[in-house]
Simulated scan of single mutants.
Amino acid sequence: MAEFLSLREAVSKYINDGDTVAMEGFTHLIPFAAGHEVIRQKKRNLTLIRMTPDLVYDQMIGAGCAKKLMFSWGGNPGVGSLHRLRDALENGWPNSIEILEHSHAAMACAYDAGAAGLPLAVLRGYVGSDLPKVNDQIKFIECPFTGERLAAVRSVRPDVTVIHAQRADRKGNVLIEGIIGIQKEAVLAAKRSIVTVEEIVDDLNAGVNACVLPSWAITAVVEAPKGASPSYALGYYDRNNAFYKEWDSIARERDTFQAWLKKNVFEKGAA
């Protein structure tokens, strides 16, 4: 059953150096507040998993938290490159990192297999792709029923999954509204999970076919208003498009990035 903790407590208790950590949320509900707390606590040697690593992972990589990144697309949406990721890959600053690249379809299938407790996922894909040449977790198998050649990928089973959502009730059940990415599967695939929410309420008021994560699937619930900003949370606040544009110049140089990190992450703290 989920326990209610502060963000500081949840990250300290459930994210350890060397863990494999997934932080998911597609377009909105990206867990920025949790990512910043990981930075503040100076977690190290993390293997970061995210289908679409964007600003939050650029910040964590630039802060020295990561040793490896597993992903299927990386960039600043609508703007350009992730400069801290590029600096780590090209120049080893602040430390070098490994990358493991998949397709979107393979990542989604790998999470789904992890949620089902399976060791691998099978899909039609990677035919003609060069990714199998650089990713040793992509194999090809023969279907025992049809003889068809299919791709197989190792399932994703993180030590910890972190997501953001709109609401949790006082029993620890969580409601996710709006665009649903891979959050549900990422939580179910993980050994432990932290869910930050905009608010804790008496009743979720969940509609028919709503995405509700049950308390038994969640390790810790954290009330963290605006915990997804500068991304958006449907029904609570809009995306801060200006910041995504500003990030390009902030992250481009090490000095401006470090100054931003000091002012906006380390000096702000978390409850």
Rank of each mutant, 00 (worst) to 15 (best):
E3Y: 15
F4A: 14
L5S: 14
L7I: 10
S12H: 05
S12L: 12
S12C: 05
D17H: 06
G18D: 04
D19A: 10
T20D: 02
V21P: 00
A22W: 05
F26N: 09
F26D: 06
T27M: 15
H28M: 13
L29Q: 06
I30C: 03
P31W: 03
F32Q: 05
G35H: 01
H36M: 11
V38A: 08
V38M: 12
L46I: 02
T47A: 13
L48I: 02
R50M: 14
P53G: 12
D54Q: 10
D54H: 08
L55Y: 03
D58R: 00
M60K: 01
I61L: 00
G64R: 04
K67T: 01
K67A: 04
K68P: 03
K68W: 02
L69C: 13
L69N: 06
L69W: 00
M70F: 07
W73N: 12
G74Y: 06
N76R: 02
G80I: 01
D87W: 01
A88L: 01
A88C: 04
A88K: 02
E90C: 07
G92T: 00
G92E: 00
N95T: 04
E101K: 09
E101L: 12
H102K: 14
A108P: 04
A108F: 13
C109Q: 03
C109V: 03
A110D: 06
A110P: 12
A116M: 09
L118A: 15
L118E: 15
L120C: 10
A121I: 04
L123R: 01
L123D: 02
L123K: 02
S129G: 08
D130C: 06
P132H: 01
K133T: 08
V134F: 15
V134M: 15
I138T: 09
K139Q: 10
I141R: 12
C143R: 07
P144K: 11
F145L: 14
T146R: 09
G147Y: 07
E148V: 04
R149S: 14
L150R: 07
L150E: 11
V156C: 03
R157S: 13
V162D: 10
V162G: 10
I163Q: 08
A165F: 09
Q166E: 13
D169K: 10
R170V: 15
N173I: 02
I176Q: 15
G178N: 08
G178D: 07
G178A: 08
G181F: 10
G181T: 14
I182Y: 13
K184M: 07
E185R: 11
L188H: 01
L188D: 05
A190W: 05
V195Q: 03
E199V: 05
N205G: 09
G207E: 09
V208F: 14
A210I: 07
C211E: 13
C211H: 13
V212N: 13
S215L: 10
A217K: 07
A217P: 12
A220F: 12
V221Q: 08
A224L: 07
A224P: 07
A224N: 05
P225N: 09
P225G: 08
P225D: 09
P225Y: 06
K226E: 11
G227F: 08
G227T: 10
A228E: 08
A228L: 11
S229Q: 04
S231P: 06
Y237P: 03
N241I: 09
F243R: 00
K245N: 02
E246F: 01
W247P: 01
I250F: 03
A251L: 02
R252T: 07
R254H: 04
D255L: 06
T256G: 01
A259V: 13
A259R: 13
A259P: 11
W260L: 07
G269I: 03
A270E: 04
